[in-house]
Nucleic acid binder design. Structure first.
Lengths: 254, 254
DNA sequence: TAGTGGTCTAGACCACTCG
DNA sequence: GAGTGGTCTAGACCACTAA
């Protein structure tokens, strides 16, 4: 059953001139329109590639080309041996640099998910950032954000134990990083630096963000300091490239 | 002649187990290593795809898959009817939000290129930003930045005529936007908002950035205001996704 | 006109997932 | 074991570019 009838409908109209727009792009267009209009809702499983190729009257390679593009843009996600699913996310998730994450701008509810928390040897980057020696431990916190059902952000945060000796229990009790900040004596903080780069998703990142392997993502590395200038957090996170809009606003005077 | 001998060298060693890493990725690896080490210098033209497929002992489709990935990452650029060229750019270009573009951090020289300047009806976005009516004109300035010989940034800037009635001549005389700012009575300004999104390059953008068509890019939209809060510039620019690192630093107190 | 990259086909075998 | 997506082949025709 799945989305077979919908796809049959999509494939029923004849193609425009190939010289105008390649067939695979026309297939890409039709599927994309169906996803953004909701004709193919989030989570829908598509028919097998062989079936779809027949439906659209093209070879499997041509069909795969259209699907591949949608996978790179995060609209479809392929799982080997299972199928291809609609990932959607027609609206971009907006991240404001100077506001909390659960911003009302994103109408749908944001769910923050704690994946893991513990003490591990600091990453090379964290050791340098915090001025630690190799082998020194830090608090590592892994978080994932979900917009509706769709994961749109994954981050690994590291905190110096010297600043937050009881981070785990503080975090568990207050249920938030800001709560752990306060319990550690940090009443206020500043995001001092943010670095943005493009990259390919690693296997685990793609898995956690529910993306096909090796699709482009946006990567951010940021540091927070307390008011005295001491660095209290190193955060490295990633979003689907086409699923987020990052907004940096100048700080308000005063 | 071209890079045929180099490629023959690359293709001479046998492949690892296909189950470990697909052939096309192994080819991708070898070409990538040759590009980043300088074995295939910037601007080098590769042999034809048919020849390379024979060299690497694979079908053309498999070879194209390896090439395609490098094109998406901006290491290679294909020009239809001409050939495939090394674009390189192994070092990322670093853009600091609160500093001038020609930052000493980028060791190689940055060249700023004025592509066009003139008055045109404001874009819909500029009209809204400046509070203009449809059809009202603005100053439009198109710029491109080159790192060495490689284009790494393209931007379209719009300025309100009400603020800069003599922008063109001021810009021509001073040779810089800041000069035109000063001539227009704007001695100081603030970058108030920056929005970052991922996108696919349009045909003209790909052309100007010397990228293959429809590769992922990073897009920024930013506004500047004078000290009174009046918006004096709307800038929309783009970089190759894998060729830039954007750094946002908190403003210094005072 | 010759060579290039872009598109497309009709097969094949594989590793993986799940019932 | 049946079905899935991932890889790979050996062809073909096209539009484009440059000499």
């Amino acid at each position: 059953m799945i989305a077979l009838e919908t796809l049959r409908e999509l494939a029923s109209t004849p193609y425009a001139d190939r010289a105008e727009r390649p067939i695979w792009l026309q297939i890409y267009d039709r599927i994309g329109a169906a996803v953004t209009t909701g004709l193919l809702p989030e989570g829908t499983r598509l028919p097998g590639e062989d079936d779809m190729a027949v439906l659209f009257g093209v070879s499997r390679a041509t069909l795969r080309r259209a699907l591949r593009r949608h996978q790179q843009e995060g609209h479809l996600v392929a799982r080997k041996g299972v199928g291809i699913f609609v990932r959607s996310l027609s609206v971009r998730y907006i991240v404001h640099q100077n506001r909390a994450f659960n911003d009302p701008i994103n109408s749908e509810s944001i769910v923050e998910e704690t994946l893991s928390i513990g003490r591990i040897p600091a990453s090379a980057e964290a050791a340098e950032t915090f001025g630690l020696c190799p082998g020194d431990e830090v608090i590592e916190l892994r978080l994932r954000m979900l917009l509706g059902n769709m994961p749109i952000y994954f981050t690994i945060k590291e905190f110096p134990i010297s600043v937050f000796p009881d981070f785990e229990s503080d975090y568990a009790e207050t249920g938030s990083i800001l709560g752990a900040y306060a319990a550690g004596g940090v009443e206020n903080y500043r995001r001092t630096e943010t670095r943005i780069i493009g990259d390919m998703a690693s296997a685990t990142e793609a898995d956690l963000l529910q993306l096909s392997p090796a699709v482009p993502i946006l990567r951010a590395r940021s540091t927070n300091t307390d008011l005295s200038g001491r660095i209290i957090e190193l955060s490295r996170g990633c979003w689907p490239l086409f699923g987020v809009e990052l907004v940096f606003e100048a700080e308000q005077a005063g």
